[in-house]
Design a protein around this nucleic acid. Structure first.
Lengths: 233, 233
DNA sequence: TCAAAAGTGTTCTTATTACACCCATGG
DNA sequence: CCATGGGTGTAATAAGAACACTTTTGA
């Protein structure tokens, strides 16, 4: 192979760490590989980037093919390109993470074909390729991001209770439930930002005092940001 | 499809935003392109990644070929892969930034060949490719990083005065000189972290009271981090 | 009436801000 | 002796941490 040719005998892919939250643990959506290499192993959903496709578009496509979702929170994290990371050749991969509302998630045909399943973050075994490392880095990124930007809401239904929000933070940051964050201080802080609005409705069908439901008000948030505010928990 | 295009299908490169500080502005090292496309334009130093070369290694190589420096602070920032970002074909590029001590910088043969020059961040014109965007994103990353990690020291000589350190922060964060940060509060804060050690020597050859010189103590810092400390300015 | 989670304030401690004068040196 | 930047402390304010009981609902 000529030197010039060898430069271009390479490919790039995107891998997408899709996070979800169901009230318990933080989850990640994995697929079981149907083909070699690593056949039968769990892996991050990903694909080669098409020749005339932007990277973000490729990541969105991978997400949509698996979940049917569009317009979801998506962020590029890092590119992994160790020479030997792919056993069949030189493939560098651009890692993304997405945040989805599990309630919106419906299995698509592609999901069935690839046997997609939610796995608790704390219970992910050995993955294909360098996907454990990728997951780890993406989780760290999420943990930072959730404290500096209002991305946690992407994982909750449109209307949520403050307790749900607190549990989300505790899950993402891997803090002991109802011990990591003080309930009163957490509420004081999040409400003092003035980016949550109380809904008319209350929680329903629970065997205890029903909680107020809140919504994130993005317009208000954007305006505060323009005035110099910065989200911080 | 022309002959060039026919094998130039897709490739990946690294681009390196090399920052330096000389007491005045924050600087970035640019090269003037000697070949098409964008011949004669200023650009970030970069190169295609060799087929059997890791990404970080490629970024280190680009840096060393230009400056002769090794073991320098280097961080991957983001990958830029818009379909049309390179006029001759599909080239995605992995952007890095490096922090170097300008006093260590000596022009290498490659530097001459490529006419490398320091440019003030505030005075960078229109660059080749999407390099203005890359520079912008890397600068933002540096601005965040310098506040959360002890990377500012990488831009200063081993021994520095507190005023130099303060000026560095003001330059990187683009604050008005001696107005953005309060001298007494800045010193109180940085010294209270206990990661700077006073040198025996004093500043020399200045037409005013000579300042104490300090050094960053990485061992101490690492230990504090292990104990849960986190750098924050 | 019980269980289960919702909701709510105050005190203490710590970090951040604002601010002005004397000191040491070289020219 | 003058110009230049070096070096220092305190008081006021704001943010964060710690902490326990009453309320509302469904079963």
């Amino acid at each position: 192979m000529s030197e010039v040719e060898s430069f271009f005998k390479s490919a790039f892919s995107v891998d997408n760490v899709i996070f979800g939250f169901d009230g318990g643990d933080l989850k990640v959506l994995l697929i079981q590989r149907g083909a070699a290499p690593f056949r039968g192993k769990w892996a991050l959903p990903g694909d080669l980037v098409y020749p005339n496709e932007d990277l973000d578009t490729a990541a969105e496509r991978v997400l949509e093919q698996l979940t049917g979702l569009r317009g979801v929170y998506l962020e590029q994290v890092r590119t992994f390109g160790a020479v030997d990371r792919h056993p069949l050749g030189r493939v560098i991969t651009i890692a993304y993470f997405s945040l989805i509302k599990v309630s919106d998630f419906a299995l698509t045909p592609a999901s069935f074909a690839q046997s997609a399943h939610w796995h608790s973050i704390s219970d992910v075994g050995e993955l294909a390729f360098d996907h454990n490392e990728i997951l780890d880095i993406c989780l760290q990124r999420l943990q930072r991001k959730v404290r500096n930007a209002p991305v946690g809401f992407e994982l909750l239904p449109q209307k949520f209770t403050l307790t749900e929000l607190q549990q989300l933070y505790e899950s993402v940051l891997n803090l002991p439930k109802n011990k990591g964050l003080d309930k009163r201080n957490f509420r004081k802080k999040i409400l003092s930002m003035n980016v949550l609005v109380e809904c008319e409705e209350m929680q329903e069908g629970v065997a205890h005092r029903p909680a107020k439901l809140y919504q994130f008000d993005r317009e208000r948030y954007d305006q505060f940001v323009a005035e110099g505010f910065s989200f911080d928990i």
